[in-house]
């Protein structure tokens, strides 16, 4: 019986192929990571058009620099470091130029979503996760609340709670000490909880 268990094509193999100029390997690499990178960038910058451009730019940088990638860190954390640096710089530059999307400051959300959020946060039982994803208003409310965090706190929450990175991976992506990662996650979650509480009040 032939073994058809899913094969995780190693990044190392793909990178070697990319380094030798194999364009189909580059496409595979893009295909493999495009959704995860886009999702993280989008949750940090909150604008789909900007996120699309930043994702493209991330891949351009990855391809331009892949010859110099020596595998000292994993490709995954290296690519995310590029993406996060580009995104944070972009957000900071736009904030300084006053270009921040007005949408992100609008906190008008339906009473229903606010009510659901209140119930959810105070719920003793474990709520159905699918109900969160399906409630568009609730998701918008959560994302609007995220935009009230500063970039550093928003980024670390996105990497941990949305992308699901370990503390060690985050420390490589953000080039921070493990202890700093730990304290920043704690502070970011505390601030996020405070923001949510003001939203539901």
């Amino acid at each position: 019986m032939p073994d058809l268990a899913p094969i995780n094509i190693g990044d190392e193999v793909l990178i070697e192929q990319c380094q030798s100029g194999d364009t189909s390997a580059m496409e595979r690499l893009i295909l493999k990571y495009q959704n995860r990178l886009y999702n993280v960038i989008l949750r940090i910058c909150s604008n789909p058009d900007d996120a699309a451009e930043l994702t493209q730019e991330t891949f351009v940088k990855v391809i331009e620099n892949i010859g110099r990638f020596q595998g000292k860190s994993s490709f995954y954390t290296w690519a995310f470091r590029i993406a996060v640096n580009l995104t944070i710089n972009y957000c900071k530059r736009n904030a300084r130029l006053g270009l921040k999307s007005l949408d992100s400051d609008e906190s008008e959300s339906g009473d229903q979503a606010t009510g659901v959020l209140k119930d959810y946060l105070s719920n003793d039982k474990s709520p159905d996760p699918a109900s969160i994803a399906q409630n568009r208003e609730l998701c918008d409310l959560v994302m609007q609340s995220m935009t009230r965090l500063d970039e550093d706190h928003r980024t670390i929450l996105v990497l941990r709670d949305i992308e699901g990175m370990s503390y060690s991976q985050i420390s490589q992506v953000l080039e921070l000490e493990l202890g700093t990662v730990r304290s920043r996650i704690s502070r970011a979650r505390g601030k996020f909880k405070d923001i949510l509480e003001t939203v539901i009040e």
């Binding site: 893009i30 959704n35 493209q56 351009v60 391809i63 996760p129």
Partner: peptide, 30 residues
């Protein structure tokens, strides 16, 4: 419990997909 609920809110947000033909756009950018 509150901390878990807060984390799960973010964890279960719907995953957005990258625009199609991203590779093509990357090539144009290059």
């Amino acid at each position: 419990r509150v901390l878990k609920n807060t984390r799960n809110l973010l964890h279960h947000l719907p995953r957005e997909e990258a625009p199609e033909e991203l590779a093509h756009q990357v090539r144009s950018l290059l």
